[in-house]
Simulated assay, not measured.
Amino acid sequence: MKYKNLTPHAITLNDGRVFESDGIARVSAVFSEIENDCCTQSFGEVVGLPEPQEGIMYVVSSIVFSATDRKDVVAPATGHPLCVRNEKGQIVSVPCFIKK
């Protein structure tokens, strides 16, 4: 299986494989007017996600993953207990991807 990373940053798996960004898939958002320093946000369509291709899994952010029912998308397992973090608590690598 080939993975195409559609997040804005490289994804590193715990085994050392690195998937560099190769485009960006996003979910469109609409914001209300600001009142009392707050607004509401609603989400729309996924943009930047190519049509399915045989043998390709698209790595996307968790919000894009949640916004689509496609079986050819995965997201980094950032909540997994085996994530590797640096001294600041930032994720350095993930053990795997999540799928539908």
Rank of each mutant, 00 (worst) to 15 (best):
G89L: 05
V46C: 07
A29I: 08
G48V: 02
V92W: 00
A10L: 01
C96W: 04
T40A: 15
E51P: 09
T78F: 02
N86L: 00
V46H: 08
D72C: 08
M57T: 15
H9Q: 09
S93H: 05
V92L: 06
F43K: 13
R26F: 11
S93Q: 05
Q53A: 14
R85P: 00
G89R: 02
E51D: 14
P95C: 03
P76M: 10
T40C: 10
G23L: 09
E51W: 06
K100V: 10
L6W: 03
R26S: 14
R85D: 00
K71P: 04
T7G: 08
N5R: 00
D37R: 15
H9W: 13
R70V: 05
G16I: 01
C96K: 11
A77E: 06
V92A: 02
K71R: 15
M1A: 12
I98A: 02
M57V: 10
S61V: 04
T40H: 12
G89D: 05
P8M: 04
H9I: 07
M57L: 13
R26Q: 15
P50S: 07
H9V: 06
F19P: 00
S61K: 12
R70C: 06
T68L: 05
K2N: 13
A10R: 01
V73H: 02
Y58F: 03
N14P: 02
F19N: 01
M57Q: 12
G89N: 04
S61N: 06
C39L: 08
K99V: 10
S28E: 15
E20L: 05
P50Y: 08
N14I: 00
C83A: 11
S42K: 10
C96D: 06
F97R: 05
V84E: 05
F43N: 10
R70K: 03
Y58A: 03
S66M: 11
G79C: 12
F31R: 14
N5L: 02
D22A: 15
N86T: 01
S21V: 08
C83N: 13
P50L: 07
A29M: 11
C83S: 04
F43E: 11
G55Y: 08
D72L: 10
I63T: 12
D72K: 09
G55L: 09
L82A: 14
S42A: 07
C38P: 03
I98W: 04
P76Y: 09
F97C: 07
P76I: 09
E35S: 13
T7N: 12
M57H: 11
I34E: 14
K71W: 13
